[in-house]
């Protein structure tokens, strides 16, 4: 042990408070989570493999038998499918956020963070931001694979970028749901499965993989108002892909606006709940 004398006691600098502190604290935590991702690249890799498998399986297994807009063509189906796969992929960020936060709780890191004079929401914001980066990376790789199997955009680059922005916003919104799940369960394992289970009905009772016109009325009603469907519909419109729903439900007629509203509402509600839960969190 080096026998340096202890520096005189000093309290931490006074927090600047407000938005500046929230931002820097969140970025510090986001950086930490991104460093972790580079140290556990398997997680990122599996996150990439899964959607690619979906693309390949759906387009080659179902492609020849599902009807979209009155035609049964593998090529049309693939172009229809991609918006759904993109949307499903971004929602899987939920499970990552949940498991990561549950793990931090389990390891006592949340206690350390909570004992520091940092912005209240920063641990969770940092986590969701890091997940957003990972999601963006996944979406880029997925888009390349999609182009390789024959997916095309027809409305120009700007609209396509708009669609990707909506997708990432949806993913960010869903990661706040994951954060709340992660804070509410005891183990990372529970957070992973708890973060996934509910995603299946949400992504399947929607327009993501099938034409909703074939659904029974009540199911179709749910699918039309599903926040997830709004983003999928918006993407199809902005990509110029086939299978745009002709339903007269409001979110289907105004999909871009509906997608924005849904995502913002989800963020507002779940961020509030998650931050409140964080403040009283006990491992």
């Amino acid at each position: 042990m080096t026998a340096t004398t202890e520096a005189p006691q000093s309290v931490a600098p006074r927090p600047r408070g407000g938005i500046v502190q929230s931002t820097t604290d969140s970025l510090v935590v986001a950086r930490r989570n991104l460093i972790r991702m580079t140290r556990i690249p398997e997680v990122v890799l599996f996150g990439l493999i899964q959607p690619i498998m979906f693309v390949v399986m759906f387009s080659y297994v179902f492609g020849g038998s599902l009807q979209v807009g009155g035609t049964v063509s593998p090529d049309v189906y693939r172009n229809f499918l991609m918006a759904g796969i993109f949307a499903q992929t971004v929602t899987f960020a939920t499970a990552g956020a949940g498991a990561g936060i549950a793990d931090d709780m389990h390891k006592g890191l949340i206690d350390r963070f909570r004992s520091l004079p940092m912005a209240r929401g920063a641990v969770l914001t940092g986590r969701t931001l890091a997940d957003l980066v990972q999601t963006a990376l996944t979406v880029v790789v997925l888009a390349i694979v999609a182009v390789l199997v024959g997916w095309r955009i027809h409305e120009g680059v700007l609209k396509a970028l708009g669609a990707f922005a909506l997708l990432l916003l949806l993913g960010y919104a869903f990661s706040w749901i994951g954060a709340l799940i992660g804070l509410s369960v005891r183990t990372p394992e529970a957070a992973t499965s708890g973060g996934l289970i509910w995603l299946f009905p949400v992504t399947f009772i929607s327009n993501a993989f099938v034409d909703t016109s074939g659904m029974t009325a009540w199911l179709r009603h749910i699918a039309d108002w599903n926040p997830f469907s709004a983003t999928v519909q918006a993407c199809r419109v902005l990509f110029g892909n086939p299978g745009v729903s002709e339903s007269s439900a409001w979110p289907m007629e105004h999909p871009v606006l509906a997608s924005l509203i849904w995502s913002v509402v989800i963020i507002a509600v779940f961020r509030t709940l998650a931050v409140r839960k964080y403040r009283s969190a006990t491992a």
Binding site: A12, P13, Q21, T24, L116, P117
Partner: peptide, 9 residues
């Protein structure tokens, strides 16, 4: 370093 930053250094 992370802890230092979060102590607002």
């Amino acid at each position: 370093r992370m802890v230092g930053r979060l102590y607002q250094m």
